[in-house]
Write a protein that binds this DNA or RNA. Sequence first.
DNA 1: AGCACGCCGACT
DNA 2: GTCGGCGTGCTC
Length: 807
Amino acid sequence: MRRIASVIVDVPTLQTNRPFDYIIPVDLIEHIEVGMRVVVPFGNRHIQGFIVDFKEQSDVKNLKEIIEPMDVTPVLNKELLHLGDFLSEKTLCFKIAAYQVMLPPALKAKYDKYLTLVQQEKSNELPDGLKKLFFYQNRVNWKDAEKFAPTSYLYRKAREGLFEVIYEVKSQGNKKKVLYYVPTTENVTEFQTKKDQLPKPLSPKQEEIYQFFVNEFKPHTVKQVEEQISNARAPLNALVDRGLLKKEEYEQYRDPYVNREFERTQPLPLTDDQQKAISPILQAIEENQDGVFLLNGVTGSGKTEVYLQSIQEVLNKGKEAIVLVPEISLTPQMVNRFKSRFGDLVAVLHSGLSLGEKYDEWRKIQRKEVKVVVGARSAIFAPFENLGIIIIDEEHENSYKQEDVPRYHARDVAIERSKIHNCPVVLGSATPSLESFARAQKGVYHLLTMDKRMNQVNLPTVEIVDMREELKSGNRSMFSEQLFEKMQDRIAKKEQIVLMLNRRGYSAFVMCRDCGLVVKCPNCDISLTYHKVTDQLKCHYCGFETITPKVCPECNSNHIRYFGTGTQKVEEELGKVLPEARVIRMDVDTTSRKGSHEKLLAAFGEGKADILLGTQMIAKGLDFPNITLVGVLSADSSLHIPDFRSSEKTFQLLTQVSGRAGRHKLPGEVVIQTYTPEHYSVQFAKNHDYLQFYQYEMMMRKRGQYPPFYYLTLIHINHENVQYVYSVAEKIASFLRSQLSPTTHILGPAASPIVKIKNKYRYQVLIKYKQDPNLPTALKKIIHHFHRDQIKHGLTISVDMDPYSLM
DNA sequence: AGCACGCCGACT
DNA sequence: GTCGGCGTGCTC
C-alpha cells in the first residue's frame, strides 16, 4: 500500500531542499502518482510540491495529509525526475528549481482549473448537476464541478478520457500588457453626441485625435496614434479626463503563424558527403546505440537535410526526436523546413509563444500527438518517453547555456538523456566549440565531416581589407574601395548584399566629445544604453532610466553626442554614396517589435531591398539565393572583449556571415574590413579553415589554462559593502585553496569586469581544474557556511559550474 | 519563504 | 509588571 508520499516542496531554500513526508488520504490513494504536483500543508500555509517517492513508513511522527493533487497525470515522469536530480547535482541548484525549469511556465504560475467534456456523446452518463453545468457551458470551473460530484470521480473520469483538465493562467504578471486608449461609448454616434455635450470645445490637438478615433473607432495605443499625430500622449490623457476615452490594459498577443499550410517536401537525394555523414547516425539509431556525433559541415553543406532524414529513420522506428536550435534562428524559415517534412507531427517551442501556447505545445508532446519537437534550449526537457535522436544545431552557440539558475547546458542534458534512451546525439556546426571538437579529436565524440557545399557550389572567396591602409591612402569613408566597387557591381547586376557591422557587446551610448565622459548608471558600473524612441537612457542591469542630458554633467560642454550601434550611420552613408540602393536595416531599434525580425527578413527574401544591413543578428541562418556579396565592416570589435572566447566568437561570426554568400547557383564573395588583418581569427576565417583555427586556438587555450584543457567554475560574491564582499571572497578563496587539489588553480578574489550592479559590488573567484573530486563538496560547504549571512546581510554567493561568460 | 518562539529594552 | 524589537530555527 502506498501510504506515504515524499514531497519536494516549493520553498527554494537550503533547509527545505529535501523531501518532506505526507500521508496520502485514503480516497486519493488511487489517484496519486509519483511526478504529480500536490498541494500540501507546510507550517501554517498551503504550498505546492512534487511527489518524488512513495514509502510505507516514515521516521517523522506527526505526518500531515496531502490536501489535493494538482494534476490528473504526472507532469514529471521518472526520467524527468531523474534529470531534475541530475541538474541539481551538476549545477548545485535546489531540486525545486530543477523541476520547475523542466515544465512549461504556465504550470508554475497561478492558475484556474477547468474541466471540459471531451466525449460529448457520453454527457448522459454525467451526474445531474454536472450535466446541467455542461449544458450551459463547455468548460466548467473545477470548484463548481466538485459541488456536484466527488473529487475522486472527477479524477477517474479525467484519466479515462471523459474530461480534460485545463489550467488557465490567472495572474498574467509575466505576460506583456499594453496600454490602450478606448472610446467610452458603444458606437460613433454616441461618441459624437458625447463630445457635443461637453461644456467646453476640444482644443485643436484634442479635436485632431478625436477625429482619428472617429475614423477608426476602436482601441489604439499611443504608438499607433503617434504614427499619424505626433506628441499625442498629453492630449490623449486630456480626452480621458474629459470622459471621451478611457485607458485599458490588454494583453499583447502574437500573430500566430501556426495554422499555415505547409507544402510537403520529400527527402532530397543526398550528396556523397551527406551520405557518408548520415550512415553512422542511421546505424546508431538502428542499433539503439547512444553516443555523440559531431557533424562538422561547412556553411551550405546541407546539415539540415541530414537532420531531417535521420529523424525520418527515428519516426520509422516509432520513436521521437528533439531538435534544438538557437533562439535567434528559430525563425519561420527554419520551422518551415521541419513542418514541411513532418507536418502535424512537429511541435514548436520558442520564447515568442504566450504561456498558454507553450503549454499547448507541451501538452501535445505529453499526449504523444507529436513526434518531433523543434525548440530553443528548454525544449531539451520535452517529455518524450521513447526518444530516438537528439539534434543540437549550431552547437557552438552560447544560448544553450542558461545563465541563471539552474545554470545548465542543454548539451549536457542531451547527453544524459541519450544514455537513458540509448539514442544518438548529433551536434551540428560549421564552427564547433573548441570543447566539442577536442572531444571529437580524442574520440569521445564521433566526428563527421562535410567539407563541400551542396549543388557543387564553392565556398565564397574572402578578401581581407586593411583599413589602416585605406586611411593612409586618403579613404576616410567606412567603405573600402574594394567593398564599394563590389557593391556597385552587385546593385547593377540586381544581386543582393549583406553588410554586417560587428558590434558585439556594444549598444548605443552617450558620450561627451570634449571630456570623453560616457554616461553611466549610478547604481551599476555600466554605460547607460540610449533609446531613441523615448530619448531616454536606460540601464540594462537595474532598469534605471533618465532623460538624455543636453550638456555634459561633468564639464558642461554641449558637445554631448549619441553614438548608435552604428547601423544608422552606415545607412545614412549608404544613402549618400549609393542613393539608388534600397536598404533594410536590422538592429535592436528596428527589430524590437515582435515579429518585425521575420517581416524584415521576408521583405529582403522577396527582393524588396538590395542591401541587408545589420548587426551580428544577421549572421545566422539566412538562406537567400540572390546574396552574392557579404561585407563585414569592422571585424575587430569582438576581438577586444576581455573574454577568453573572444577569438573563437570572432572566428565563428566571420565564418557564419561569410556563409550567407553564394549558397545556391551564383558564386559568392566576402569582403572583411579590419584594422587587425594579421589576427589569426581573421586569417583563418578568410580561408574557411576551421581546422587550422582550432589548432592555433587550442595552443592559446593551453597556454592560458582555459577550456578545453581545464574546466572552469566561477563564484560570484555580491554585497553593497566593498570591504565586506572582499573579505568574504578572500575567505572563500583561501578555503578553496585549503580544500582543493594542488593542480587546481584558484584565481582571485578579483573585482568582476562589471564591478557594481544594482548598487552591489561584485567580486569573483575563478577555479580552473582538470579534475577535482572535492570541488562539489567544498562548494556546498561554502554555501552552507555563508547561508546565514546571505539571508541576514543580503550577501549573495552564486556558483556557475562551466560559466559561459566571465562577466 | 513565512511564521512562531524567545530573550532583552522601554512603556502604559 | 507588559508590549514589541528582531535574532534563531522549523516546517513532514
